Amino acid sequence: MVRRRLMVTSVAVMTLGALSACGNDKPAAQPPQTVTVTETPTQTSPSPSVSSGSSSEPERPPSVRNDQTPRCGPTTLSGVIESGDAAAGNRYVKLAVTNTGSKACTLYGYGGLQLTNAAGAPTPTKLTRQPDPGPSLVRLEPGQKAYKNLHWGAVPDGTEPVEGPCEPASAGAKVIPPDETEPFMVKFDFGSVCEQGKIDGSAYYK
Rank of each mutant, 00 (worst) to 15 (best):
A12I: 11
A118D: 09
T40A: 03
P133S: 10
Y204H: 08
S54L: 12
C194W: 09
C22D: 09
L19K: 03
D189N: 15
A119W: 02
A28H: 12
K206E: 15
D85E: 11
V93N: 11
N66M: 05
G201H: 07
Y110D: 07
P142D: 13
D157R: 00
A173D: 07
D132F: 14
Q43W: 14
T69H: 05
G197R: 10
P177I: 04
V35C: 11
P74N: 12
R139H: 05
G201W: 03
I81G: 08
Y92H: 08
S54Q: 06
P142C: 01
G112D: 01
V97E: 06
A173M: 04
G172P: 06
E195C: 02
G17D: 02
L107C: 05
S51Y: 14
P31F: 06
G109T: 06
S63W: 03
S170W: 14
T76E: 14
T15V: 14
P161M: 10
G172S: 14
G17N: 12
P124C: 00
G164H: 01
E182K: 08
T44G: 06
D189W: 13
G158S: 01
I81S: 02
V186K: 06
A118H: 12
T42V: 15
P46A: 09
G172R: 12
V13I: 15
P58R: 03
T76K: 01
R91A: 10
C22T: 02
A29C: 04
L6M: 11
S52L: 04
T159S: 14
V93C: 00
G17S: 11
E163Y: 01
A29M: 11
G111R: 02
A18Y: 08
P131E: 04
A29S: 11
S136I: 03
D25Q: 15
A12Y: 00
P122E: 00
P124H: 02
G111E: 02
V193A: 08
G134W: 03
P156V: 00
T100M: 04
P178C: 01
A87T: 11
T128S: 10
P131G: 09
T100W: 01
D157N: 15
T75W: 13
S20T: 12
P183H: 04
G53L: 01
G109D: 06
R5W: 13
L6Q: 09
D25I: 13
S83R: 08
R139M: 04
K174V: 00
N66E: 14
A119D: 15
A203I: 10
A86S: 15
T15W: 13
S102P: 00
S202A: 07
T15Y: 12
P32H: 05
T9N: 09
S52H: 00
G84H: 11
G191W: 06
R71F: 15
P46D: 13
F190E: 10
L127N: 04
T106S: 08
A88I: 05
G172H: 12
V35W: 11
I81T: 05
Y108Q: 01
G158Q: 05
V2T: 10
P74S: 09
Q196G: 12
N24G: 02
G197P: 13
L127Q: 09
P74F: 07
T34D: 05
V37Y: 09
G197Q: 12
C194P: 06
R91M: 12
K206N: 13
D200Q: 15
T36F: 08
V186A: 00
C72Q: 00
V97W: 06
T116W: 01
Y147L: 07
Q43D: 03
L127A: 04
R60K: 08
